[in-house]
Design a protein around this nucleic acid. Sequence first.
DNA 1: AACTATAGTTAACGTCGTTAAGTATAATGT
DNA 2: ACATTATACTTAACGACGTTAACTATAGTT
Lengths: 240, 240
Amino acid sequence: MSAKRLTATQRPSQIRREREREAMRERILGAAHELFAERGIEAVTMRAIADRIEYTATALYFHFRDKEALLRALLTDDFRLFAAQFQKVATLKDPVARMRASAKAFVAFGLTYPNHYRLMFMTPLSADPGLSAGPDIDQQSPAEDAYTLLQAMVRDAASAGAIKPEFKDLELVCQLLFSGLHGVVSIQLAHNIEGQNEHARIQWRSSNKLRDAMCECLLAGIVTEDAISRSQKKSMEKRS
Amino acid sequence: MSAKRLTATQRPSQIRREREREAMRERILGAAHELFAERGIEAVTMRAIADRIEYTATALYFHFRDKEALLRALLTDDFRLFAAQFQKVATLKDPVARMRASAKAFVAFGLTYPNHYRLMFMTPLSADPGLSAGPDIDQQSPAEDAYTLLQAMVRDAASAGAIKPEFKDLELVCQLLFSGLHGVVSIQLAHNIEGQNEHARIQWRSSNKLRDAMCECLLAGIVTEDAISRSQKKSMEKRS
DNA sequence: AACTATAGTTAACGTCGTTAAGTATAATGT
DNA sequence: ACATTATACTTAACGACGTTAACTATAGTT
């Protein structure tokens, strides 16, 4: 009743407990992340995670509703990392150069973190993130972050007059770019290319070749010739 | 010793047994196929397959080395069905029209048999087909059938002068087409679009729109303008 | 008629995700 | 100050999974 009375969420012992809870969550996610990066998705079992932080498997259920929720929390970080790759090249002024750099970043991410990429874009986590969603957390869906950047990139390109006028649906352009690059990466990952023995059924071209070819095809289809030649002139200047 | 002496593989009772063995294999694969088509990959368990044909789970191991081998045998049929889709349009004379029709068939297959597509192209079956291979069977890798058709299509297009001269690596062209379309399909399947609620994070365009856009982009990048305008004139004639 | 390969069975192991029930410890109400 | 209650775990267990070992009945061969 008094003005000094602290509300339930502010009681010192409670906020300390909350902090400890959060710390425990992070320890769990850390262990899961390690296992995942080291030995792939199938090594991430509830028991293995618990072992690594010296708890029992059932303890995890106090912090995560189930394994899927745990994996989704893991994904949050990964999507942020993914988005960060595109932030890096968002400063490029020339729209076509930026698109090329983004494509490069996209494929590089997939090949650098194959396990993560697989979990993010190739594993059905009972209908990806979202599900029934519920009143879980604010969350803001960090999966969107990268896509939002992609949208911004395409919008910028459009307002710079770099997109062919027949493409009125910019969303379609975004999804076209995403699909094409995802195709390149996911095929590369599905046929784990590294160990490509000489008499393999299909001699897959290097991801660099495929990425460049895909990139130039999509750009040729989407971007005006003006914008492409402008970007080439710029990169010429840089080289000289 | 005598000339009438049948070799081991020809003894009547043996070939009958072999036939029965094959029949059993087919029953198993049939049950697996049903379960798979009806309820998806996770419903395909050794015990469920066995139940359906009124055997015990361990009996399956007499006919298949393990679950992976069983699934791979299942895939064989699926790849044949996949290849058949491209056979259908292989008769089209105009190279560009044939490429368009193949793209349509590709995406249609993926959306018609999502479970199969996922298993074929989106599920790591411990390094897809092949593995250590061993002296298993002739097999001839039916996964190749469709790819072989793709190669033939591109080669035909090239010898008809439809491919831009800068594309000297026809294999790269094949893989470019495959990657682009696979990207469209796999994204469509990963975000099971049917139940796309209105305030979903990303408003995915229809697979038809994406397929057409991807197709035209890739064609624009790969095929000569001549060939494209020729194919358009032909389709004009048809329409009139 | 004795032997042997074939095609199955039952029982079991170790793994998994997950739930139920119990147990200390710390924070709170009176 | 003491009884109560919520918190953060543990142990035990369930049912399902892929898979192996050991056993059994049947058919084919000799």
